Every structure is written in C-alpha cells, then in structure tokens.
Amino acid sequence: MLPVDTEFIPARAVAARAAPALAVLEMPGRQGVGFIVSPWGYLVTNLHVVAGAEEVHVLLADDQLVQLEEVIALDEKRDLAVFRLPDHEVPALDLSPEKHPGEGDMLFLLLPAGGGMLGLLETRVHAIQVLDESLTFLELEAALPEDASGGPVLDASGALVGVATCAFADGRPITIVIPARYVMPLMEQSGTQPLSALAMARPVASRQRHVPSHPISLLEGSPTDGIEDIALSIMQAIQIGAPTYNRGDPEGCYRLYARTAERLVQEHSDCPGAQSALREGLHRCTQLSDADERAWALRDTFDGLLHVIDRWLQAQAAFARMAAPKSYLQ
C-alpha cells in the first residue's frame, strides 16, 4: 500500500503519493478514470463510467496498457464497479473505510489532465447527504469534469476517502463522493464475472427534475414582506421534509409540503404570481398516484419559487441602492 501519514501534508505531496494508483480507462468512444486499491490489482471506478462497455483497456501510471477481463463486483445502487487487473502488481491506495470527513473539511480530487499530466482539484465538503439507510454520500463545493468521474478523493493527510462521482441535482451537475466504506464489501465477494456483465449493468438513473423557470415578472406588485414570508415558509418545510423523505417516508414529506403550499395559497392573495405557482404545483400532484412523485412535484414547485424569489429580492435591493439619496462633498 502507498504509505499515509496522519499529519496534514502539502497538496503536491498528496498528488505525488496517490499518482501511481491512478488509471485511465479507455473504452470504444469514451474514456473514464479509476484507481487501484490493492497491490493484487483491484481497480475501482463508477459503474456508470463502464456500464455497457464491451471492452475496457486500462492505462496505468507506468504507461502499461492492460485489458480488463474479470469483474469482481458491480453495485448499481451506489454506482460502483470493482475489477481485477490480469497479473499485475501495482502501487495502490490504502482503502480506509474509517475516514468520515465533516462539512467544511478539505478534500483533494486526483484526475488526469492530459499529456501524461495530473490534476489535483482542491475543494471542501459542502454537505453530508443521507439518501436512505443504504447510502450516505458527501456533496462537494467544486465541480468535477464529467470525464473525471471515478477518480480517488483524498483527505488532507493523503488517505483515501472515496470515489469522485458526477451526479445531477436540480438540473445541474454536482460532485459527490461515494465513501470508501462501501468499496470494501465488494472486494470481499467471492467469484468473478466476465466483462460481458457490463452489458446488462446500469447504475440507478438520477431523478429527472422538473423545476419551473419563472420570469421575475411573476412577483410584480407583490409586497416584500409577503414574498419573504413565502420564502421562509418554503425553506422551513424543506428543512423538515427532506430528512423525512430520506428516512423513507415520502408520504409524510408530501403531506408536509402540501400543507405548506395550501396555507400559503390561502394567506397570500397579495402575491398572486406565487399563489398561482403553488396552485399549479398542487394541481400537478392530483394527477400523480405515487407519494414519491407527489413529494418531488412539490419540491420542484418550491425550488422554482425560491429561485425566482432570490432573483426578485436581489433586483429589489439593487433598485433601492440606485434610488437612495446621494451626498456629495462640497
């Protein structure tokens, strides 16, 4: 294993220690990234990077090009794939499933930068997200190039934290980390599968969001205190509803969102544009039979309103600054 100190080390040293374990995956029509986590040649990447590939070649740090033949394990839920390189002993990262960074902690993403060069992306943990009882992941502040998905994420001591993964939320790309603790059980599975197993493998598809994009004129004529009350009520509902959903209770989440939307419709006739958007979201829910879909329909409604309210409040502040009386030195 590559040695790791417990003290903080410079970013350049983090890259130097991890570089021998980085691998570039070459498939017909596309490339990806992976890394070695065992001197016996176990290679880890995201499942979506290799799903459907009929052949996969691996370019190692020493410029050797080898062809993958054995699949050790595929995890569609967590978007992970583990392979074994044929007859190669290579420097490997130390798999440390005990590493649990918190919000604000510094992390490093190692990625190929082309021409045999390496890139090291420095970022921090934006949030810890609990999808359900089977998956907790880290959301990072920095954006990762989509073709760099599957690379290693390291902490400030150089220890492996997990797998860098490109995902989507609210219709925009985000970078998440699948923690290393989910990789260890995959490596311990007995038996192997042929590479043809990739043809049937598909990671869980990301949810398609339908967040409405409202013009700022939607809120024209609305009082500032009314708009601020709507935004605060929506944010409070999400703060309670999202954890409820993540605990496996989409019906409870939907009921909370629906009560909030119905109350705001009743109380804010002074904000007809926002009132109309909320009514439209509630009406959409009447056409959906699944609690999960209804919860997301109202979350989309809420996010669309929060986006336009943020733009509207910024515009109001700008107008106020422009209209403020100015004093001049005589």
Rank of each mutant, 00 (worst) to 15 (best):
G151K: 06
G151A: 12
P152Q: 12
P152N: 10
V153I: 03
V153F: 05
V153Y: 02
L154E: 11
D155F: 06
D155H: 15
S157K: 14
G158Q: 06
G158R: 04
G158S: 05
A159G: 15
A159R: 15
L160D: 03
L160W: 02
V163T: 14
A164W: 00
A164H: 01
A164T: 02
A164E: 00
T165D: 13
T165G: 02
A167G: 15
F168R: 14
F168H: 08
A169C: 06
D170H: 13
G171T: 12
T175C: 11
T175S: 13
I176Y: 02
A180Y: 10
A180Q: 14
R181P: 02
Y182V: 11
Y182P: 08
V183S: 01
V183P: 01
M184I: 10
L186Q: 02
M187T: 12
Q189G: 08
Q189V: 14
G191T: 08
T192Q: 09
Q193E: 15
Q193V: 03
Q193R: 15
P194S: 09
L195R: 06
L195H: 05
S196N: 05
A197Y: 00
M200I: 11
A201N: 10
A201R: 05
R202L: 13
V204R: 12
A205W: 01
A205T: 13
A205I: 05
S206Q: 13
R207Y: 12
Q208P: 06
Q208W: 06
R209H: 09
H210M: 09
H210L: 11
V211N: 07
V211K: 13
P212Q: 05
S213H: 15
H214Q: 01
H214C: 04
H214G: 01
P215W: 04
P215K: 00
I216P: 00
S217H: 04
S217L: 11
S217P: 01
L218D: 02
L218R: 05
G221E: 11
G221F: 08
S222E: 15
S222N: 03
S222I: 01
T224S: 10
T224I: 13
D225Q: 15
D225R: 10
D225P: 00
G226P: 03
G226L: 01
G226M: 02
E228A: 12
D229Q: 10
D229M: 08
A231R: 15
A231G: 13
L232A: 12
S233K: 14
S233P: 00
S233H: 10
S233E: 06
I234A: 07
M235K: 13
M235Q: 14
Q236L: 13
A237R: 04
A237Q: 07
A237F: 03
A237V: 02
A237E: 03
I238P: 02
I238K: 12
I238Q: 13
Q239L: 09
I240V: 15
I240C: 01
G241M: 05
G241R: 04
A242H: 07
P243K: 01
T244S: 06
Y245K: 06
N246M: 07
R247P: 00
R247D: 12
R247W: 03
G248S: 03
G248Y: 04
G248K: 05
D249L: 09
D249P: 04
P250G: 05
P250M: 05
P250F: 01
E251G: 14
E251N: 07
C253N: 06
Y254W: 11
